[in-house]
Simulated scan of single mutants.
Amino acid sequence: MRFRGKLVEIGCIHHFTRVIGTVSKLIKQCVLRITPANWYFILSEKLVNGGVQIWCDLPQGHFFDEYAMEGVCQEANEIYLELAPENLVKALKTAQNAKWIKIKLTKKNTPYLTVEVDLPTLSAHSRTVVHDIPVYVVPRRLWPEYEEPKLPDFDVSIVMPQLKLLRNIVDKMKNLSNYVALSANQNGEMKLMVETDMVSVSTHFRDLLNPAVNRGDDSEEPDPEVFSEARIDIRKLAQFLVGQQINYTRVICNIVHRRVVHFLLLHDDVSLQYFMPVVAS
């Protein structure tokens, strides 16, 4: 089992750092799945127990100039590592002016993801900083727990307003309640509402885009005016909005009425899925 990759282009280094920074803001511990074509950052908690699920997909060819890996065996050419993404961010932050970064899997009594950073100097001598990030190798029998989440049949799919605007609104709403009702319809409308015994506050958005919703052959088209709603933890929503460090081209919110909220964040070379559980009224 081997892995070695090298980033040279400074723009790729910065973008890679921002992506990992976003992941670190959302989760403390995750599984890094390394394949010949992609890196995946995965968190798989049970939604029914109030957990969240995250699936972040990075095509390695968009970031790495050199990339070589050898999985656990020929039939399963993949590597699964459990790590704290914050440790990887700390290593990458020392590389903002680096000539190159090498990331490799090493073993020094225990497994590490070793990050080597070649920094510029005023002399002819090179200056290399090495970070050893402890990892746990996930055994193959546990891999099925980290498969890509299956998407349910959504009742509503809507393109969200600017995240910065939503962040400001949610930041004010979280001082009023622990929960927010997020609702939308297929007519381009979305609402955020908090209610207490003393006050009810809501924000409305109109003229948003509705991506097509895939439905079964026997499913009837719902009334586009009807709202589907999900009551969620407002602090988890705020954490999700604050953690974004990438200018996504599109952020889509999918809702299964009173069951789950699914956020899909899309960039040219990155996609991030975030499943947020619904809280009972």
Results as ranks from 00 to 15, higher is better:
residue 19 V to W: 07
residue 23 V to F: 05
residue 26 L to M: 10
residue 27 I to E: 07
residue 27 I to P: 00
residue 29 Q to G: 02
residue 29 Q to A: 00
residue 32 L to I: 09
residue 33 R to P: 05
residue 33 R to L: 11
residue 33 R to Y: 04
residue 35 T to A: 00
residue 40 Y to E: 01
residue 42 I to T: 00
residue 43 L to W: 00
residue 48 V to M: 09
residue 49 N to I: 02
residue 50 G to A: 13
residue 50 G to S: 10
residue 51 G to N: 04
residue 54 I to S: 05
residue 54 I to A: 07
residue 55 W to K: 06
residue 59 P to V: 08
residue 60 Q to I: 14
residue 61 G to P: 00
residue 64 F to D: 09
residue 71 G to T: 10
residue 72 V to I: 14
residue 73 C to V: 01
residue 74 Q to V: 11
residue 76 A to F: 07
residue 80 Y to N: 09
residue 83 L to M: 15
residue 84 A to N: 15
residue 84 A to Q: 15
residue 85 P to D: 04
residue 88 L to F: 08
residue 91 A to G: 15
residue 93 K to T: 03
residue 94 T to L: 11
residue 94 T to S: 12
residue 95 A to R: 02
residue 99 K to S: 13
residue 100 W to G: 06
residue 101 I to F: 01
residue 101 I to Y: 08
residue 102 K to P: 00
residue 102 K to Y: 05
residue 107 K to V: 15
residue 111 P to T: 09
residue 115 V to H: 04
residue 116 E to F: 05
residue 121 T to H: 14
residue 122 L to E: 15
residue 125 H to N: 09
residue 126 S to F: 11
residue 130 V to I: 15
residue 131 H to D: 10
residue 135 V to M: 13
residue 139 P to F: 01
residue 139 P to S: 02
residue 140 R to P: 01
residue 142 L to H: 11
